[in-house]
Amino acid sequence: MARRQNLTGWLFASPVVIGLLVFTGYPFLASLYLSFCEYDIFNPPTWVGLNNYRILFTRDPLFWTSLKNVLYYTVFAVPMGITFGVALAMLLDAKIKGISVYRTIFFLPSIVPVVATSVLWLWLLNPRIGLVNTLLRLTGVAGPTWLGDPAWSKPSLIFMGVWGVGGSMIIYLAGLKDIPVTLYEAALVDGASTWQRIRHVTLPMITPVIFFNLVMGLIGSFQYFTQAFIMTGGGPLDSTLFYALHLFYQAFMYLKMGYASAMAWVLFVIVVAVTAVVFKTQGRWVHYGR
């Protein structure tokens, strides 16, 4: 009977298990194998040992450019996303009339498909007729060419990322709602100011949520691809050639699947390492209310 139940359980789980093995497990292992091969899709892969990795680190300057670009994006976009997300969640935690309308408004950008967001921002950042530069002109400032300027292209994409913090904001908001009122009451009784309540009650209590968003944000930003692919194609002057975009070009434009697999594994190792470091530090700043 127990065996039968077991079998039934596996049968029910089988779509997920098979899907995971076939569509995630197999490509995962295959890409590891391919990273040691030359593979152009047309012909069977041939084993070349560490050659792809050697080329990657010694003979492909664009690899370093793309790595620098993605680090730049991560270093600015992730902390900014957290800061704005938390700040916005706190504002939208206020008990005022029509608050759910405001919440909806700020959440909306995060449910707009990324392609639509990208096209929208292409218009907003248009140097001549875009809203951003039009507003700047009203204040007497001549705006840059944004995505057309190597110095401004990455900041433009970072601004655009901040616009979409609604998704993480909702999670912070849930975290804020979870903070027991008694803690604030105790702080009030002790005579804590607003800033002290934020600093010593609110922020420590939502550190698990910040930690979650930090990890997810890091993983997401290292894989940053779609917006750059649609909006800039890596230009101008490779200033938005992000790691995943370089990888995509190697695989599908230059037919170097083996090399692209090696790139993917290097990225995987970087992401795992960074995430491990963040996990290591959590003991010092993440409070689980215990």
Binding site: E38, I55, D60, P61, L62
Partner: peptide, 17 residues
């Protein structure tokens, strides 16, 4: 220089040692 390097990389890719 970049294209020369790429050509070398691709040649390696086509005719592996």
């Amino acid at each position: 220089d970049e294209v020369d390097r790429e050509l070398k990389n691709t040649r390696v890719s086509l005719k592996p040692a």
